[in-house]
Amino acid sequence: MEIYQLRTFIAVAQQGHLTQAAELLHLSQPAVTAQIKALEEEFGLPLFERFPGGVQLTEAGKLLQPDAEQILALARGMQNRAKALAGEPKGKVKIGTIGVPARLRLGSWLAHLRDRYPLISAQTTHGISVSVLNDVRKKVLDGGFYLGRNPYQNVTTLQLSEIGFCVALPPGMAGELVNADWKTLGKAPWLGLSQFTSLAEITLELWRSQNIAPKIVGEFDEEATLVELVKAGMGVAILAERTAKRFAADGSIALWRGGEIAVRVPLQFIYSADREQDPLIGMLKGSLKIEWDLL
């Protein structure tokens, strides 16, 4: 029995699918199948039942899963302690970023991280919340920023703040919509959001919560583009509170109900749950807590 075999066993148990587990582990499906088969032969009993849609643990597999998780946790703990004994932390951290860097306090945070851990180098990859979440799950990224609610148990979140979003109106629609109810807002044209933007799911959730299905005008993927299109009178959109109020101040856009917050969304830092005790993750979290005054 090898540690890597137990890691594969846990991945298959969590994913319920050999192909998805293989993708997560960066292995081929035949390699994952061979490792599970080797464990089953060594233990002398089946660990999974196979179905057309995937696999699920047998009763024996369910009983053995906690033991496997404990062994892996002990192995990770040993690795982490060894790393801590190696002296000054060093290496590269890969961080996923979203939206506007200033909103993430990215500059001051990375500067603090550099000052505190001079042998740690940071590499950032800009994307959207969904892509950052997927890359953290696949361990392509060490961690990243995420806007919204995390649906995965194997990803841990550190909430940094909440971002409020306002409904932005073209000036030409303000007279009709500035104090409108949601039913009336739902009849107005709205700017559609590409799936490749962090605002897409937030906007859809807002519409669902208010039971509206607006007519969509186009599909756009950047907050700055939304601002320009609202200014031009194309339709209604949600904008981050700070952005919305900055442009409302010069009259180029109007705000529904004077800038009332339509929805609040958590801004979080995310990382793989099995790295909770990893010193590198601890460094990132510690410096973030200082930067965001969470201590």
Rank of each mutant, 00 (worst) to 15 (best):
K245P: 12
V140N: 05
L24T: 11
Q277V: 01
M1R: 13
G258Q: 08
M283H: 15
L18Y: 14
E23R: 06
D67F: 13
V32E: 15
E176S: 00
Q65V: 09
G218K: 10
N150T: 08
A102F: 02
E276Q: 06
A224P: 04
Y4E: 15
E40A: 12
K245H: 14
W182N: 01
G218P: 02
T124S: 00
A174Y: 00
A244P: 01
S129E: 05
A13G: 00
H26F: 14
F9C: 05
E49S: 15
L119A: 09
W182R: 01
L85T: 05
Q56S: 13
L18E: 11
E222Y: 14
E49I: 13
Q15R: 15
F145H: 02
V217S: 10
N80V: 05
G77W: 05
Q123H: 03
Q70Y: 12
A168T: 07
G172D: 02
F145R: 04
P214F: 07
K139V: 07
I3P: 07
L185H: 07
S28H: 13
E241P: 05
S131C: 03
L280R: 10
S252R: 14
R114G: 06
G251C: 10
K139Q: 08
Q65I: 03
G258F: 06
A224N: 14
R137I: 11
A273Q: 11
D181E: 00
I95M: 01
Q29S: 14
G172I: 00
R149N: 09
E260I: 06
E176K: 01
V55W: 12
F165R: 13
G258R: 13
V167P: 04
V217L: 04
F145L: 02
P266T: 06
A111M: 12
A21G: 04
I163M: 10
Y271L: 10
G53K: 15
L24F: 15
G164D: 10
G127W: 03
F48P: 01
L199F: 14
L74W: 14
E2K: 14
L226N: 14
L267F: 02
R246Y: 12
Q70I: 13
L6S: 09
A244I: 00
M283S: 05
N211E: 03
L74G: 10
L295Y: 13
A200T: 11
M78D: 15
K289S: 12
F165C: 07
S209Q: 03
G127Y: 00
E201C: 03
K183F: 08
F43Q: 13
R114V: 11
A84C: 06
T157F: 08
S121M: 05
G233A: 07
Q195E: 11
P279W: 00
I71V: 11
L110P: 01
P189A: 02
K289Y: 03
S108E: 08
L226S: 10
G16W: 04
D181Q: 00
T184A: 07
V55H: 10
T243C: 13
F145N: 00
P151H: 08
A68S: 05
A38M: 05
E59N: 07
L169N: 04
D115S: 13
E2I: 11
L72C: 10
E223I: 09
A86Q: 15
G44I: 01
W182S: 02
